[in-house]
Amino acid sequence: MRTQVGIVGAGPAGLVLARLLHRAGIDAVVLERRSRSYVESRVRAGVLEHGTAQLLDELGVGQRMRREGMEHRGIELRFGGAGHRIDLAALTGKTITVYGQQEVVKDLIAARLADDLPLHFEAEVTGVDGTVLEYRQNGVRHRLECDFVAGCDGSHGVARMALPDGALRTAERVHPYAWLGILARSPAAAEELVYAYHERGFALHSMRTPDITRLYLQVPPGTELADWPDARIWDELRTRLDLPLQEGEILERGVTAMRSFAVEPMRHDKLFLAGDAAHIVPPTGAKGMNLAVADVRVLAEALAAHYRDHTDELLDSYSATCLRRVWQVQRFSNWMTTMLHRHDGDDEFGHRVQLAELEYVTRSTAAATTLAENYVGLPR
């Protein structure tokens, strides 16, 4: 087989890229090693920046998001026993939309299949030889020849691993805490997302639907789920969030390590990396999926210029263009993480400094605007 762009991975990055390329008249084949049911049920982030939601509308896949998603005009920071609202809409004129990543993926998959475009599940890429993708599906080996390859297959995917030693520079930070997260059949206890700084550690109240909540607790790395029975989880959430939580069935639970990671450049010859294949950010700022979408918007425009205008200027600047945003998002995500988490070994001085930082952010219009501008999404 042959195509213009081979896309490895059917997550948000790969599927949005495929949609953008289709609208530009560029052929693409998407290869995903997992099954469709697995990809569509994989629970991930659920906060869409203003620009991400707008793009889904432009791509013709935003109808269900607008119908079922929840538009939020602000977020709340809780500390010192009180809540402090950051009015995103008033400060920036923009909002965020709470809509699960797996729902975005479902919408994009449905649209691609409805257009009868190539999307292969359980197609495991086993080799990347220049612009040739070798993959196995149903026990049969295939070769896909491409003009370009887009590696959108995550931080442990084959695309980045296929690059020669020394092709990339990496920067990484492992954070000294983890998140214990649950998905619960419980009505939301607040109308907007609540980020809580507490002397016992960070907590987050989010939601997926009005009746399904996503809740997180700061825990030490290496925490075992067996040490956290349901009663302990709910008690700790109530203590840290200070919200009238209604206990419900816990549908999913897990412990997530927190790290920051980036590679440079995000391109090697005709292979381009996007999304988690190129960078990981702490989840505190809700930026992972949004950053992946920002990458592929740049890549799609660059590929369109190559085929339409026969110029590679945008392809040549792809990495530098993306990395400017990547490092701004890394800065914001690390700032949010540091400000809101309790640090092991912190004395009373460190604790009071964090409280002062939070008070400044919530009392200063300039500081609140900085948070709001980053949270709703930096301009392109």
Rank of each mutant, 00 (worst) to 15 (best):
T3S: 06
Q4C: 02
V8I: 15
A10W: 13
L17A: 04
G25I: 00
V39K: 12
E40C: 05
E40H: 08
R42K: 07
G51A: 08
G51T: 08
T52S: 08
L56D: 10
D57P: 05
L59G: 02
V61A: 00
E71G: 08
G74W: 00
I75H: 06
F79N: 02
F79C: 05
F79Q: 04
G80A: 12
G83M: 03
D87G: 03
D87F: 01
L88I: 14
T92F: 09
T95C: 08
V98C: 10
G100S: 09
Q101K: 09
A114K: 08
D115K: 04
P118C: 02
A123G: 05
A123D: 02
E124H: 14
V125P: 06
D129K: 10
G130Q: 11
R136G: 05
R141T: 03
H142M: 06
A150D: 07
S155I: 08
H156S: 11
A159Y: 04
D165G: 10
G166E: 00
R169Q: 03
H175W: 15
P176H: 11
P176E: 08
S186M: 06
A189M: 06
A190F: 15
E192M: 11
Y197V: 01
H198E: 05
H198P: 01
R200E: 15
R200M: 15
F202V: 00
F202P: 07
T209A: 07
Y216W: 15
G222H: 04
T223H: 06
A226W: 11
A226H: 13
P229Y: 03
I233V: 14
W234V: 05
W234T: 04
D242I: 01
G248E: 03
G248Q: 06
R253I: 01
T256K: 14
V263R: 00
P265Y: 02
M266T: 12
L273Q: 00
A277R: 08
A278F: 04
H279L: 02
K287A: 12
D295I: 00
L299N: 07
E301D: 13
L303W: 05
A304W: 07
A305W: 02
D309E: 15
H310V: 02
D312E: 08
D316M: 13
S319G: 05
A320I: 13
W327T: 14
Q330A: 14
R331S: 10
F332C: 07
F332W: 03
W335C: 12
H341K: 10
D344H: 14
D344K: 13
D347R: 06
F349D: 10
G350S: 12
G350H: 14
A356K: 05
E357S: 11
T362Q: 13
R363W: 11
R363M: 10
A366G: 12
A367W: 15
T370K: 13
L371Q: 09
N374Q: 15
Y375D: 07
Y375N: 04
L378Q: 07
P379D: 15
R380D: 11
R380L: 08
